[in-house]
Structure formats: C-alpha cells, structure tokens
Design a protein around this nucleic acid. Structure first.
Lengths: 182, 182, 182, 182
DNA sequence: TATGAATGAGTCTTCATTCAT
DNA sequence: AATGAATGAAGACTCATTCAT
C-alpha cells in the first residue's frame, strides 16, 4: 500500500501553513505515517520544505496560466487569477511567510510569479483601469497579503472557502470605500 | 550598566518578527546580552513570546486610542489608525502569524482590538461611507493582511517606512481600480 | 538490539543509590546507551526517579509477601524479610534518602510497607517476643537505617553481600550486647 | 550588622542534610542573606560543603572527647557518646550520605572517628560485654545508620529529640528482642 | 517498503560564580 | 560589608535523522 507522496505533501502544506514550527513528527502523524516513513519520502526537513515551495510555485504558475492574464481587461484577468489560485492559497501563504531560504529554482520561480503579476497591474495602469499612485510592486505584495489573510481566515473557519475569490478580488480592486458612481 | 528590559523586548520583537524560529541565543545576541541574562529578564522562551504579544496588544490599543476611532468620518479615523499603528506594524505582523497560543489576557486583548476595528468598519457602512457587501470581519482581517504585507515589505527593503500609511490606507479604502468619478 | 528498560532501571538504581547527584549523562553511560535513548525510555529525570521509587516499592512489597510476615514467630518472620529484601537493599536505601517528592502512589506504597513492618513488630511485642519500650514506628525506622548502612557498606566494599541478612537481623534483634542468658 | 558565619553554617547544615541537592540560592535564603553574600562567607559550594564536613568532624570528635570512651564499661561509654553527639546528629547524617568527596583532612578526621568508635566496640568485645560475632566495623556502621535514622525521624517530626539517646543506644545495645534474663 | 528503536546535534534552562555599585 | 545584575559552564531536553528488522 504505497503511501501517496502527493497526499503527504498536501497534509504537510496544510499543517505547516498553520504552524511553521511543526515537528517532522507532527507532519508524519498528520499524514498518517511514521516518522521514518516520512524520511523515506523526503530526504529531510529541508527537502520537504523545498518540495512544498516547488509545489506552491508550480500551482501558482499553473493558476497564472489558466487565468490568461494577457486577455481582456486587467480587472477580469485578476479575478480569473484569484479564482484559479484559490485551491493553492494555503501553499501561497506558506511561501509568503517562508521568504528567506529561497534559493535557486524556488527564488527564480517566485521572481517569475512576481513579474507576471506586476506586469498585469502595470498593464491595468497603462490601460487606464488601475490607479497609478500605487506602484505595481506594492499592489503585488498587497495581493499576497490579502490572499494570506483570506487563507488564514478560511483555515480558522472565519470565512467560507467559496467566498474567497469575491472577498479577495473585490477588496483589492475596489477597496472598502463605497464607489462614488454607484 | 543595567540592561533595559524594554530594550531587550524591542530587539527581540525586531528579530522574531523577521524570523520566528530565531534561537534564544540569537535573541540574546541581538540584545547585546548573554543567554543567561536573557533568561533573567524573561523566564523562558514562552514568557518572552507572551511579553511580545502583550506589548503588541498594548501598542495596538494605544494606537486605537490615539486614532480616536469614533470621531469624524470613518475613512479619516482609519487613516489615523493606520498612521498611528505604523511603529507597531512589525509586532502586529508577529501577532497575526502566532495565532495559536493566544490564551487568557492576550486573547482578550486581541478580541478587544478586533471589536474596535470591526466597529469602525460597521460605523462606516452604516454611515454610507463604506460598501456593505464586504463584512466588517473580513475588512478587519484584510487590514491585518495589508499591514503584515507592508511590514514585511519594509523589513525586506522593498518599501519605505514613510510610505506605509498611504499605501495601506489607500489600498484598503479605494482599492486598485481607478475611481470611476475621477 | 532492543535495550531492556529493566536493565536501564537496574543500572540507574545502582548508580543513583551511590551518587544521587549523578547526571542523566552518567546514568545513560552506566546503562550503555546514549542520553537521547535514555530520554526515550524515561520522559525525564523526574520520571526516572519515579520509576525507581515505584520499583523499590514493588520489590520491597514482593519481599514482604515472600517473607510471610504473619507466619510463626515474629523473629523468624523478620529474618525472612531481611533475607528476601537483600537484593533490593540499594533501592530501599535510595528511597529512604529521597524522602521528599513522595507523591500519590509512591507515598501510598511507602505507607503500606510501613504499616506491614510496624504490624510485625507490634505482633512481636504483643506475643512477648519483642521488648515494649521501643515503639514499633521507631523499630521500623531503625530497620531502614540498618538496611541502608548495610547497603552502603556493601557498595563501598566494606561488607560482603552474603553477610547482609545476618548482620542486619542479628543487630536489630539482639543488639550489640552479649546476651545475658547465653 | 555582620552576619554570623556560624549561623550560616548551622542553617546550611539543617537544609543540606534534608536535601543534599539544595541550591546555593536555597542555602542563602535559609540563612536570610543574598546569594552574593553567601559567596563572601564561603568561597564556593565546595568550600561550604567542606566547612560543613569539618564542622561535623569537629563536633563529633568533641562528643567523643566528652564521652570519655575509655572510662568504665563500654556500654556506658557508648551511651555517653550517643547522648553527647545528639546535637550534631544532623551533621553526622550529612557526612554519612556525602561519603565520596572525602579528601585530605576530612578523610583523616573521619578515619579518626571510625577508629575511636571501633576501638570502643573492640574493648567491649574483649571485655566480654559485647558479642563477638558482629565485627566492630559493622557495629560502627550500624551506629551511623541508627543515628541517621534517628536524625531523619526527628527532622520529619516522627520522633522527639529528647528520645534520641535512649532509642539509639537501647536498640544498638540490646536489640528488639526481649532480653531472656529480664 | 515500512517502522520501532537508537542517537548526534543543537536548543533551552539552571546554577554557581563574579562584578559593579 | 552587602547586594542586585550579569554571565560562563554545565545539565536537561528535543528533534531530525539513521539503522536494523
């Protein structure tokens, strides 16, 4: 009964996102296997974290692909991305808080993601959709922050997962202020 | 040469906010004292973290007080709070990511803060300033997320500290979209 | 090569009886295992001491059982007990000097032992075998003291283990004075 | 208000006899002074212990002197010694359990005491007062054991201090058995 | 392959001791 | 002389990792 490597990764992501200091023992127990078996799947803690990072990068980039960021209004593209990235929100939140030991390929992947999202905001600014007093880099960081806040709220049961795209996109796009023209 | 307990707390906050897994040895070195002396000031790691949490609660509540949340337009009150809380942004980010061992007084303090900020958003909604499709609880969480994102950006040098209030308040209030009426 | 928990306990007893301040490292080395392995078997120093106490209680009570204290002359019963308890003399001496953290079950066990030995002395007094000017409680304490003295003498090589029962029982029963009637 | 060095020694003896692992802090608090002050009186823990040992040796030898061991029947001499040593029983018990780091003068003192007490028992044996099947060395050890048991019983409140000489001497001399000729 | 047992490395904590006042 | 503050050294404990079955 070969233990599914992906299953281990998923449960590890869920656990480590919530509590970055979780023990390898905790991770193993969360996956329903023994410590030693966990070590057979991932050479060590570092390898596990790297695998999580790689998975987060991969799923985020896949979400970016699915969102076709270059098509149509930037606002719609952003909504598509937020909806597409929802399943990986936990992994993304994990990545955001682990922003130190990024090395090599993970760092490169993160840069690619940054660049694509920033480019989207820039396109929106140049197209007159987005305001220009908030730099794309900050809008990108803010998006990460909102995704993280949303993911944590969902994990703690304060928010329903199905509300994620609306809450995140609406706040980022329109803010809390009541729109003047409405 | 009496070591100031407050000084130890400040440097510990700066370090632990950046790297939650920092060793007691690291914390001591950051404060310029020995491990044993650190233990004289804080009975153990747990006591240190609790002291940090208490400080974060305290400073955030002080910022809420200074912002006079009940005075004038809710939007202005929010701006005042964001500006007032800026020095404690790192502590606040630390609190947000440590969302587990909240116990007793810290939990109570956090609830007080939550209640006051939520009440501000509710006042804004009832006064017609804020949109009503985003619940106050989510707006509150989003504010935490933005403050955290901002604090991390500043710590990593991607954002200037003096831009904190504007970036945070503007995004939260107006969003990225270009205002229709402009 | 599974390390026997009982073997660890035995060597720990031998060491701690001799030197109560022995390090966990010392205990581990005496058992031929590493510090961490010792911690796998006993959650901590306190747990180890409690296990030793429990073992001492258990072996002493077993010796009491084997000695059939209620059968025949009290003097013979006492001789049987002293002979039966000899292998556990070190543990008993350890218990006597650790007379503080007795809690819960250990305390209860110690009380049971006290009661049974005191009852034996009382039976001897009531049967006319033992003098009545020395209270049973003191005779019991004296027995502990003699057992301890004997155990220490053996450990330090000043006395042969096979002489233990004779030396202890003879002195306790007859004292140093030459018997008048002999 | 010069703190009395002897007072510190006395309270330290009382504490360390009860709990050999007591902290220097505990010792200082028991003496009503600060840790640092304790260190002004005794260069270190080792020095304190050595001072205690020296005091124990000194008081025991003084008791031996006062008892005039060579005068009259050995039995009476033993009674005199037990009575004389009663105030130092706690110190003696401490010495008995600390039987390792005896070095130099302390060891020599202990040997002197051993020799004098053993000589007393030997004199009793040769004079026909004491039985000859229990070697003087063991009788000496047994005396220490009984003194220790008595001291512990007194400290724990299970025995009155004024009963010490009778209980100890009677048991050691006559044992528990009812004397035949009585 | 999976796992209980064992352990080296490293962190946390305490204690005896020193220092500055 | 006495003491609060500071700390080096050492012990207790945990965790990631390896090994034998």
């Amino acid at each position: 009964m070969a233990v599914d490597r992906d299953h281990v990764l998923r449960s590890a992501a869920a656990l480590l996102t919530r509590r970055a200091s979780a023990t390898m023992d905790d991770v193993a127990r969360a996956a329903g296997i023994g410590r030693a078996t966990l070590h057979r799947h991932f050479a060590g803690r570092e390898a596990l974290v790297k695998a999580l990072e790689a998975l987060g990068i991969q799923e985020t980039e896949a979400a970016l692909d699915r969102a076709r960021l270059d098509d149509g209004p930037a606002e719609d593209a952003l909504r598509r991305f937020v909806a597409a990235v929802e399943p990986a929100a936990g992994l993304l939140a994990f990545l955001v808080t682990e922003n130190q030991l990024f090395e090599d390929d993970v760092h490169a992947g993160w840069n690619r993601i940054d660049a694509r999202i920033s480019a989207l905001f820039r396109r929106g600014q140049e197209g007159g959709e987005f305001r220009i007093d908030l730099p794309p880099a900050w809008l990108t960081e803010a998006l990460y922050g909102l995704i993280g806040a949303c993911a944590w709220s969902i994990q703690d049961g304060r928010l329903a997962a199905r509300d994620f795209p609306y809450m995140t996109a609406e706040l980022l796009l329109g803010g809390a202020r009541r729109s003047v023209s409405t």
